[in-house]
């Protein structure tokens, strides 16, 4: 696998096709389990594990599964892994098992997993599929943890179960708060994403005129990229020079505060 491919898969999973903010898939667990950061991490990691396993198995079996029955076959594979995760959690982390409740078996019908199986694992090699599962899952985990942190800090004044202060806004732990925080986060993410993409596009235009340096080590380029994106995001959020986007920016920023 080339570095270019690795970079593409990882960035797709984490940012470009982020399941929570870009594709808006798997919304039920996102809304229900973002009440606390720890629940978000637990759900995210459970989904990541199932996603990697099902992607690998489906990719291995992609030539053996007939096209006509592929969806039932995928669902059975996913259901098997969900059952395994459920038994393990029930035995070893009962508190998380309790808080996940009905949403744990519902991972079977989570559109992210079936979506990756259908659109990626059934067409790609095993290693690529495993990586795709890993990064899509991590994208989901990061998003869920972020939402969980926002809601936990504002709604119960704590972070990862540690009490920070007594100030709390009950709205953020209610179901209405879930919709509000999620909606505002999508708006903010899309806004920043559009800005970053515009910047990259204009930079690529400049690069095309000059010869571009070779991309050597995938790990390095990935880290560089992440840094560069973080830096750009920062400047993009600070500088509100775009005229028509100005109002949108103010609104979404205001909502986050």
């Amino acid at each position: 696998m080339t570095g270019q491919r690795f970079k593409q898969i990882s960035l797709d999973g984490l940012l470009r096709n982020n399941p929570t903010f870009r594709l808006v898939l798997g919304t039920c667990p996102t809304l229900a389990l973002s009440t606390a950061a720890f629940n978000g991490i637990g759900m995210g990691l459970a989904v990541t594990f199932i996603l990697i396993c099902s992607n690998v198995l489906i990719s291995l079996l992609r030539k053996a599964i007939p096209d006509a029955v592929r969806i039932p076959a995928f669902v059975i594979i996913i259901a098997t892994f969900v059952t395994i995760v459920r038994m393990v959690l029930d035995k070893f982390i009962p508190s998380l098992y309790e808080s996940m409740g009905v949403y744990l078996p519902l991972i079977v019908v989570n559109c992210i997993i079936l979506g990756r199986a259908e659109s990626f694992a059934s067409k790609n090699k095993v290693l690529d599929s495993a990586l795709d599962g890993l990064f899509t899952g991590l994208g989901f985990t990061c998003a869920l943890t972020l939402l969980g942190m926002i809601r936990e800090v504002l709604g119960s004044g704590s972070l990862f179960g540690l009490q920070l202060w007594d100030f709390k806004i009950g709205f953020f732990s209610s179901s209405a708060g879930a919709f509000f925080v999620y909606g505002m986060s999508i708006a903010l993410f899309n806004h920043i994403y559009a800005k970053v993409e515009n910047k990259i596009r204009s930079k690529n235009f400049a690069v095309r005129i000059m010869p571009s340096p070779d991309l050597a080590d995938p790990q390095n380029t990935l880290a560089e990229d992440a840094e560069a994106i973080a830096a750009r995001t920062q400047s993009g959020a600070d500088a509100v020079e775009a005229k028509e986007r100005g109002s949108a920016d103010a609104k979404s920023n205001g909502g986050e505060d």
């Binding site: 179901s175 919709f179 509000f180 909606g183 505002m184 708006a187 899309n190 986007r245």
Partner: peptide, 23 residues
């Protein structure tokens, strides 16, 4: 609507107010 709010975000906000109603 502002561009960033179009689609899912504004739908979520509407759902937020619906949830308040049901609350």
């Amino acid at each position: 609507l502002p561009k960033a709010l179009k689609g899912f975000p504004i739908t979520m906000l509407a759902a937020c107010f619906m949830a308040m109603g049901f609350y």
